[in-house]
């Protein structure tokens, strides 16, 4: 198995308060890796380091290394804007931009110069298909994305991220506000997508982690408690803490 993302001794603190306390973890290529843990465990912060969205948080101090294909993305030479083309993100709250479905998907690609109209059209269609949304919107690409249902909006956000042609997709509790059917559609899409992408799924829903991830990591209070193949973590956890969390004793 190839390592896509290697995190070494990652520490993040806000105004002296340590959120991540020296994390090290390897995320494998073309797998879905689940990050779980109770609120405040640092899993969302970890995500925001990988896509460098943490740059927009004032007072955040980041130490350690995050290597993507062996290159430290926290280094000075890395352009965070370019990095975000390689590391796409889907957030918890579906947030379509106030414009048409087509223009939402086209937003990222259009920022890169030299995208021709026809290529863009193909990219938009492909992205919508991969996110399992194409059939529902193919006749109304020019209507406002705000008119879609919540579940459709979240798949739109996934398609919009795919249109960046990223290598890594980060999903930060993407199904937390969705109904079971919408959730199932997203999960189905992710299962297809892992062939081409490295996926990290943050979720509080341990059943979801058990259902669709290949590897699972359990975080607690800014440290990695347990990490391994999902089946092992769920059937035979080595830490008492993990077992308690999975069984719903806390969290």
């Amino acid at each position: 198995m190839n390592v896509k993302i290697r995190i070494e001794g990652l520490k993040v603190s806000f105004e002296g308060k340590e959120i991540l306390k020296g994390l090290s973890i390897d995320v494998f290529k073309n797998k879905i890796t689940g990050f779980m843990g109770p609120a405040g465990s640092g899993k969302s912060t970890l995500i925001s380091v990988i896509n460098r969205m943490i740059d927009f948080e004032d007072n955040a101090v980041v130490e350690g290394k995050v290597l993507i294909d062996g290159q430290n993305i926290l280094g000075d030479k890395i352009d965070a804007v370019q990095l975000r083309r390689r590391v796409g993100t889907v957030f918890a709250v579906p947030t379509p931009l106030p414009r048409s479905i087509y223009d939402n998907i086209g937003y990222g690609p259009r920022l890169k110069r030299g995208n021709h109209r026809r290529e863009l059209r193909t990219l938009v269609v492909e992205s919508l298909k991969k996110a399992f949304l194409w059939d529902e919107v193919k006749d109304r690409l020019d209507t406002s994305a705000l008119k879609l249902s919540g579940g459709q909006q979240q798949r739109l956000c996934l398609a919009r991220t795919l249109a960046l042609t990223p290598e890594i997709i980060l999903l930060d509790e993407p199904c937390s506000g969705l109904d079971p059917i919408s959730t199932a559609k997203i999960e189905e899409a992710l299962d297809e997508l892992k062939k081409d992408y490295t996926i990290i799924l943050v979720s509080n829903n341990t059943k979801q982690i058990a259902r669709i991830t290949d590897h699972a990591a359990f975080f607690y209070m800014g440290t990695l408690i347990e990490y391994g193949p999902t089946e092992k973590v769920f059937t035979n956890p080595s830490e008492k803490h993990t077992e308690d969390y999975i069984q719903g004793k806390f969290g």
């Binding site: 969205m53 975000r84 083309r85 796409g88 957030f91 947030t95 937003y107 920022l111």
Partner: peptide
């Protein structure tokens, strides 16, 4: 703020976010 965050996450710079979103 969400709209700005989304724009940044789609590889927009600050100026692109200001003018396009």
């Amino acid at each position: 703020r969400n709209l700005r965050i989304v724009s940044y996450s789609l590889s927009a710079t600050k100026w692109e976010t200001v003018t396009k979103v």
